[in-house]
Design a protein around this nucleic acid. Structure first.
Lengths: 259, 259
DNA sequence: ACCTTGAACTTGTCTAGAGGACTAGAGCAC
DNA sequence: GTGCTCTAGTCCTCTAGACAAGTTCAAGGT
């Protein structure tokens, strides 16, 4: 049986916070493992000798942190944490492309996960207005849009949408669902745009309902958003990639010179 | 007077959600403006004809979304959105330090915000075990811990905690609350450790209750975490800085070479 | 073999009330 | 004016109970 500790009435923290703290501690220490069911409300009431609203307030706090998920009629469960992956800053090294590997595959394998790309959609659209400036395009110019989902060990971890100017992608495998070895960056370089550098804009927010569905995450789990722009040797933007990552599946690593 | 509408008992949404929806609508439509006070609990009870816990549950929902902020003894107020700050990757350029400005001050001013540093605490502790390896320190080595809060235009946007090995900080203004012009990086360089580069590890998660309080955000607002390690010319780590940023207040910009 | 029913569990929502803690302002004493 | 107390208003926490709704499973009927 799980040892839960007791509420200390002389503590200056209110009981519901203490209870939340005790449960949080058990989760962090691994006494309650991912997927495991928390004691039911009745059990917590019995154990701590408090009213129902008090234990509910405690559980509410953990739900707000995304640590647990309540399922009506079933119980409250510890959220199962997907695998953590690190994105090293050399993830676009040319040697990987020359080996025919895309960035995601390289990293997932390095982290010991089985990578899968999923739900690939390739379309030809007019450039979204908020991206036109980044791609140095006019309002009516067309782009190839490549949307896909990434999974690690079968768990969805990221959705990504790339936008490549049609003038660059035309006649290459970029317009195909299977973009060939080394991914679209290899195709872009073959098209005469040797890559010089990328800029990345990182932020974080709560997912939209659609994103929750595709990424199979519950309410209370934030996402990392990363907007990457790729430039060739002439500083011409050749691709913008909009990615939405499950927050706890990623740690982004960057190296910044002190100058 | 604010027109709030009524609860529809035939609606399939529970009353507390309807009330939350009505208030949310008034906020989005600008009928309740940032900084403005919501009707008090008593007024909401009177108006909607429900119990106290019901209106509290409605307000709780809005707090969770970060739309409103409750202040004990004063009231509930519409949250004023903190300004977005873009952190470019040249924010540690030496020319800024030579002008006597720390990174936060430079950037906030450049973006047209009024920066304030707040709640500065300086202590001498043994190095936290999870940071010992990053700082190349043993379990019992001591570090100077500098914790502080940053505000832009009066709104909390970030809390940061720096860890500097005592061997480096000893005898410098790093151990003082006021670390002098150019911030601690200027002091570290004066101590003979010219900075070469930084690594940053970016992730995102839900805030802890403590962080929610200090940053004045609701339970539904995620935070960006950034763990920065500074290295000198000999690749010796001279500082680790653990920052927690309000997600919607920041966009982190990085430049990555294609190699 | 299949389905229905119902009991026993879970969490979700709501009511009605209590005391506590914090804030701001009015009034008073110095 | 300054500092104090008092008070009314605010949100915070907790209690005790009620009914609703979703899940699971076993007993019983077909």
């Amino acid at each position: 049986m799980l040892d839960l500790g007791e509420v200390d009435r002389s503590d200056d923290r209110p009981p519901y916070r203490q209870i939340a703290g005790l449960l949080r501690e058990r989760i962090k220490l691994g006494r309650l493992t991912p997927g495991e069911q928390l004691p039911s409300e009745s059990e917590l009431i019995q154990h701590f000798g408090v009213a129902r609203m008090t234990v509910r307030q405690a559980v509410q706090e953990l739900r707000g942190e995304g640590l647990v998920v309540a399922e009506h009629g079933k119980g409250v469960f510890v959220r199962s944490a997907p695998p953590v992956r690190r994105l090293a800053s050399d993830r676009f090294a040319r040697r990987h492309r020359e080996q025919g590997k895309s960035a995601f595959l390289v990293e997932a394998e390095a982290a010991g996960h089985t990578p899968v790309v999923d739900q690939v959609r390739v379309t030809n659209e007019t450039v979204p207005s908020e991206l036109a400036e980044r791609l140095h395009l006019g309002m009516d110019d067309r782009v190839i849009v490549r949307a896909r989902r990434y999974l690690a060990d079968g768990v969805p971890v990221e959705i990504a949408t790339s936008y490549i100017p049609e003038t660059i992608a035309r006649g290459t495998a970029i317009t195909e669902v299977n973009s060939g070895p080394g991914g679209i960056y290899a195709r872009i370089e073959e098209a005469g745009h040797e890559l010089k550098h990328f800029t990345e804009e990182v932020s974080s927010r709560m997912p939209t309902p659609d994103e929750r569905k595709v990424l199979q995450i519950g309410a209370g789990v934030p996402v990392l958003t990363l907007l990457r722009t790729a430039y060739d040797m002439d500083e011409v933007p050749v691709e913008v990639c909009d990615t939405v990552k499950v927050s706890h599946a990623y740690v982004l690593e960057y190296d910044v010179p002190a100058q």
